[in-house]
Amino acid sequence: MASLALPLPGRRAFRPGGSWIIPPAAVLGALFFYPLALILGESFAGGKGAATLLNYASVLTSVQFASALWHTVVIALLATAGCLALGLVLSLILAFIPFPGSRVLARVIDTFIALPTFLMALAFTFIYGTAGILNASLMQALHLGLPPLDFLYSQWGVILAEVTVYTPFVMRPLLAAFSLVERAEIEIASSLGAGAFRIMRQIILPAAVPALLAGGSLCLLLTTNEFGIVLFIGAKGVVTLPLLIYTKAIQEFDYTSACVLAVINVCLSLSLYSLYRATLSWFGGRSAGLV
């Protein structure tokens, strides 16, 4: 085997030099690190070019930041919980209760990952909005003067949209994990006297824990940074960190505060991403390959 690594006679072996790092580093630096460095620098910018922490003190003690952080965390946690619950139920049905068209349905759900998030918000407006199909139908059916459903333009509307958009991110690793659960294990458990609930609790779910944690961490990361859905739904009084950054930068021209918020948001995202990677590492390569 070792001989395979030897260069062929008369040919020079290809030895990549250290200079090959320059092109990707240049691209990465120009498109990612330089803008990030500018944001970081701006967040610490004080008068006369001196660095200061006052910008952070000002933002961190503001009511707007506290409210945005609260909304961001609450929406992200609830949406993630929703994704996990819905994803688990749907995945269990698709994986263990075969019905005609289940594979097609799994593929359709999978394609949700490819759709832009604001599209779901737009669809929700058509369906659940005050002038949407559901409200119009209910008003006609129940002879109501006002639309009976008014949840879309609230925090719950945002959460519902995020659950719909991000559930496939939980289902994908879950379905992969479920496909690794051997039918023989379930059959043996059944022959030993276990009912459906015990089999799910003691056989299936333990096998799905890595996928649940990985999918949940990914959902938490994505919902924390979600911007399109929050902006498009325009829920009253619901301002998350990404939306607050947008407001400060684009509407109020307060670039310094926007940069401080952006740095905080990046730190939050990196922490969640570290959690996601740590989860994958903890459960080993078997799960890492699935998500």
Partner: peptide, 19 residues
């Protein structure tokens, strides 16, 4: 159902519960 038949079963790949 299987659990009411008083059977024990061993399969080719053992199907031990891995966790």
């Amino acid at each position: 159902p299987p659990y009411a038949r008083s059977i024990g079963m061993v399969v080719q790949n053992y199907a031990l519960f891995p966790h």
